[in-house]
Each structure stands twice: as structure tokens, then as C-alpha cells.
């Protein structure tokens, strides 16, 4: 700062670091869903979908067509509400 003028700025992050990775290490997979809900609180279903797809890939689960359609509908609805 030079008077009212900002001469240089340095970005700092980590002010809401909640140790999500460490939590995910310790909890069973179905207990992660509420945590991914609260990662981005404006579009939580989309974060959930990312987590669910990861679990499905790891466990080699095939998702039925009907569930996939429902997911797309839910994610589109979330997209509307997200700013």
C-alpha cells in the first residue's frame, strides 16, 4: 500500500479449508455424499454426481438408463439454480 494505492497484492487461499480429502479417507463412501453436497452449495447435485461416478468407476457398477436420465434432469435443475 502506498497511501490509498495498492502497489502489490498477493493472493492467499485456504480460509475455508475443511480437510475434505482427509475426511474422505476416513469415512465410508456413502457418508461422503453429504460432504460433497457442501463443497459448492449452489450446485450440490453436480458435485455429488462427480463423487458417485468415481465410486461407480472404482466398483465397476453399471448404472441403469432410467437412473442416468434422472441424474441429467436433476443436474439440469441444479444448473438453473446455480448463479
Amino acid at each position: 500500500m502506498n497511501g490509498e494505492k495498492i502497489v502489490s497484492a498477493e493472493p492467499t487461499i485456504g480460509y475455508i479449508h475443511r480437510a475434505f480429502e482427509k475426511l474422505a479417507e476416513h469415512r465410508p463412501y456413502n457418508q461422503i455424499t453429504p460432504i460433497t453436497d457442501r463443497l459448492n452449495y449452489c450446485s450440490s447435485p453436480i458435485n455429488n454426481m462427480g463423487w458417485h461416478m468415481t465410486v461407480e468407476k472404482l466398483a465397476k457398477i453399471e448404472v441403469p438408463k432410467r437412473a442416468q436420465y434422472m441424474r441429467v434432469i436433476i443436474m439440469e435443475l441444479a444448473l438453473w439454480t446455480a448463479p
Binding site: H17, R18, A19, K22, L23, P34, I35, R38
Partner: peptide, 8 residues
Amino acid sequence: GIFDTYSV
């Protein structure tokens, strides 16, 4: 809350 972790 649910964030019972070292950083919260």
C-alpha cells in the same frame, strides 16, 4: 458440525 477435522 460434520467437519470434525484438524483444520476446522
